[in-house]
Design a binder for these strands. Structure first.
Lengths: 150, 150
DNA sequence: GTAATATAGATAGGAGGCTATGTAATGACA
DNA sequence: TGTCATTACATAGCCTCCTATCTATATTAC
């Protein structure tokens, strides 16, 4: 195998990953909006549901986005009545973010939308194939994260 | 295996795909900017290089983005002196997009940046593992595209 | 106790994606 | 030939991500 064809294959896989990502988002966006939620909101809602009230920094860390991205997302969610922010009594710089009742009520339907499409995406995959996929993706992610440090 | 754990695994894979996509973009963005290019521009540049002057619709089709996304991308590229648009003599509605000399000169370095990271991302993968990955990803994509039609 | 540093968040500005909708040219057909 | 659907593109408005930078509060070191 030539070095050129190795490059071509690598590029193809990464390109396909980008396409899958965008297709998934596109598919899930409309049914989620019908439930009154948006794609980026789910990790925040799930985290708040599981961990209780959290700081913006903690939410950004869990969702693996930068702080300003989380700040904007929380702004939209506050505007839409999904979250509340109250001053943290223990730290004057921080505000604790918590779910509203409305968000709590919408969350199950939102999770159902995500899970349903995730299952459809892996239709026809054996247990072993799912494991292999997880392993390969984990290794790609580890490789990419190693690049940013090393 | 329970249905719950199958859902959890599916969600995990798709979530990881999103993370890989964003990590890849993040890694490639800065070296590309140093070359004077941006991530979304590469497919357009490569297509124009290979196929010659093309219409906006054709470029959108190849890059698999919607027409307004391509229109905005081309606006930025025109602003930055990477492409030119000239009226299509054969169709008064259309303009033919072509590379400038500057873009042609920058393209090889841009491709090198992308290829280099793509190779690093798949470091430690055997030939067979790359094939398996391609197969699994193709099947996911086919599943997702089937959802949008069926 | 005050000066320097670190941390939490806010804001500005831009890339790149989407849907919905408008406009102008083409093409097909009664 | 004149109308009408289709096609190519433009525009508006929004979401989600980013970097760079600013403010305000904590914390640490002297």
């Amino acid at each position: 195998m030539t070095s050129d064809s190795r490059v071509a294959e690598s590029g193809a896989s990464l390109h396909r990953i980008g396409q899958i990502y965008r297709t998934f988002i596109k598919q899930v966006d409309e049914p989620l909006r019908q439930v009154g939620l948006a794609v980026g909101q789910l990790p925040v809602l799930v985290t708040l549901k599981n961990a209780g009230a959290s700081s913006q920094a903690e939410l950004a860390r869990v969702a693996q986005v930068e702080q300003p991205s989380m700040a904007q997302l929380l702004n939209r969610m506050e505007r839409d009545g999904l979250i509340e922010r109250v001053p943290d009594p223990a730290d004057g710089r921080s505000r604790l973010v918590s779910l509203t009742g409305q968000a709590t009520r919408r969350l199950p339907a939102g999770k159902a939308v995500m899970d349903s499409l995730a299952v459809k995406a892996l239709e026809g995959f054996s247990r072993e194939e799912r494991d292999v996929l997880q392993d390969l993706l984990s290794r790609i992610q580890a490789n990419l994260e190693r690049v940013s440090k090393g």
